[in-house]
């Protein structure tokens, strides 16, 4: 049964937010990507992406470099070593939770209706 005290399975709330997890997952496979590509790949709005990147930068998970390419401003984003490690660990935790959920059988609530077709096998 899943132990809630198992700290190894406590999810990182900063990364677990879907928008931030999408950004970090896209960045995990590249050295860097610019703002436009991240917007395309994650389908986040400009404002949302900007706000998520600011939070990730504040936490030291991404590095943001602003420069001019030709005459256009360009924002390049890459994961820091800590960010790379955190997102890999986060996905690992999610995979382990999923695997665990397949093996855990939830206790039967006596008040709940019995399933059609007979008894439910498993232990509490």
């Amino acid at each position: 049964m899943l132990e809630s005290s198992d700290e190894d399975l406590v999810l990182d709330r900063l990364i677990h937010e879907p928008g931030r997890l999408a950004i970090m997952t896209v960045l995990s496979s590249v050295a860097a990507a610019d703002f436009v590509f991240l917007q395309r790949a994650t389908r986040l709005t400009k404002g949302n992406l900007s706000s998520h990147l600011a939070k990730l930068e504040e936490a030291g998970l991404v590095e943001i470099e602003k420069k001019f390419v030709g005459k256009r401003p360009n924002t390049n984003v890459g994961l820091t070593p800590a960010g790379r490690e955190r997102v890999a660990r986060h996905w690992d935790q999610l995979e382990r939770l999923r695997a665990l959920s397949r093996t855990v059988v939830l206790p039967q609530d006596p008040a709940s209706p019995r399933p059609l077709g007979g008894e439910v096998s498993g232990t509490a």
Binding site: V30, A33, F37
Partner: peptide
């Protein structure tokens, strides 16, 4: 239109 990616 689609951005720039620096591969690993």
């Amino acid at each position: 239109h689609y951005g720039r990616v620096t591969p690993s």
